[in-house]
Design a protein around this nucleic acid. Structure first.
Length: 369
DNA sequence: AAGCCGGGGGC
DNA sequence: GCCCCAGGCTT
């Protein structure tokens, strides 16, 4: 340190508080100028905050914006959402992924209606009783919407604070939450400070190539001072990927296609799809035929494509077939747009004759086998 | 503590 | 390719 004098505990605490104050002031001022104009920031209500936080879990802002607008237009209040059919809620979530969030949000709306008088609760304790609302989301709503001094840690905050204190090694959860708590308690506007930390992480203090030259608080950042911002936090090891094969069959009868609903467990729960046989390895056409829910003829392999999720690499083998069966749910291809269907299955169903065209996702061609 | 849950942006 | 994303729930 600059002075030859050994800093005492009191002096160190004093310096730490001043540094914290500089961060709080710096971030809040920066945020007031550079914070993005996002739909859920235009009008702050508990309901809109609840919807936004649910959608933003593990999902980037740019992908949430259009879905959020459509969602709150279709379901403008807690009560409207609570009264809606889950199928319609899932359909509005289509393409966002992590569909369990939509189911949780839907039941949260019902719980708010029945147990909280239709008002989104304001304390973290009550908010956490809602399905899908955990430690982060409850604090985000309580602080950003209701101005409560609740600490809040997401991926952005975890990275910002790790760099701010130059914490190498895996970021310890307890340390991060405690650090956030100390900061937010001395912030004049807790919600603004919390949101500013996230915004900094999203725009400046990014995982790769952080823009330290534009950072309002780089001057006091320990990682920046040591030029260690690229090493903090250390990268996580990617989970092992499992290879699986989904054999999806577009079965046609009289201009309609056969649909089935997935189970309530696992991926894409309760969403619709063309009948699909899942296996660890590619199946022969006769095995696919035998496993189908109806008898078919003219079973033809049409295409294959890869679908990537966090833990799986799924090879979709797309077949078409015809059938005379009457059992099951048959729909015209142009009438399935309002059903909740995963992006992968939309791609499958694009092979149906006279299917609606789904932008680029519809071109399963090019992967013709 | 680790596994599971989607899909796409950015590099 | 790989890593990440305004996490939460289950086992």
């Amino acid at each position: 340190m600059a002075s030859g004098k050994v800093g005492g505990t009191m002096e160190r605490q004093h310096r730490s508080r001043r540094r914290d104050a500089a961060m709080i002031r710096g971030l809040c001022e920066w945020f007031s100028v550079h914070g993005r104009d996002l739909p859920w920031r235009r009008r702050r209500t508990g309901y809109r905050g609840l919807v936004a936080e649910a959608m933003l879990q593990q999902t980037q802002v740019s992908r949430v914006v259009p879905t959020f607008k459509a969602f709150v237009k279709r379901f403008p209040t807690v009560r409207v959402l609570a009264a809606a059919d889950e199928q319609d809620v899932l359909a509005m979530w289509q393409g966002l992924g992590y569909y369990r969030r939509a189911q949780h949000l839907h039941s949260a709306a019902r719980m708010i209606t029945t147990q909280f008088g239709g008002r989104v609760p304001r304390t973290v304790e009550q908010l956490r009783q809602l399905p899908g609302v955990g430690r982060y989301s409850s604090a985000a709503i309580a602080s950003i919407i209701y101005g409560k001094p609740e600490p809040m840690v997401d991926g952005n905050v975890r990275r910002v604070l790790a760099r701010w204190e130059a914490r190498a090694g895996a970021t310890d959860d307890n340390w991060t939450w405690e650090r956030a708590a100390v900061l937010v308690r001395s912030a004049g506007a807790p919600g603004t400070f919390n949101e500013a930390m996230m915004e900094l992480g999203a725009l400046i203090c990014t995982p790769k190539t952080p823009q330290c030259q534009q950072c309002p608080v780089a001057r006091h950042c320990k990682a920046y001072q040591r030029n260690a911002q690229h090493r903090i936090p250390p990268p996580k090891k990617a989970p092992r990927q499992k290879l699986v094969h989904h054999h999806a069959v577009v079965i046609v009868r009289g201009g309609k296609v056969l649909l089935e609903r997935r189970s309530s467990n696992g991926m894409w729960s309760r969403m619709w799809q063309a009948p699909t046989i899942e296996a660890d390895s590619p199946l022969r056409p006769e095995d696919v035929r035998a496993a189908l829910p109806v008898r078919v003829y003219q079973l033809i392999k049409r295409a294959h494509f890869e679908h990537q999720t966090t833990h799986r690499r799924i090879t979709f083998h797309v077949y078409t077939a015809k059938s005379r069966a009457r059992r099951g749910v048959w729909r015209r291809p142009e009438d399935i747009t309002d059903l909740p269907i995963s992006n992968a299955q939309r791609r499958v169903l694009a092979l149906a004759p006279s299917a609606p065209h789904y932008a680029e996702a519809g071109s399963a061609a090019g992967a013709l086998s």
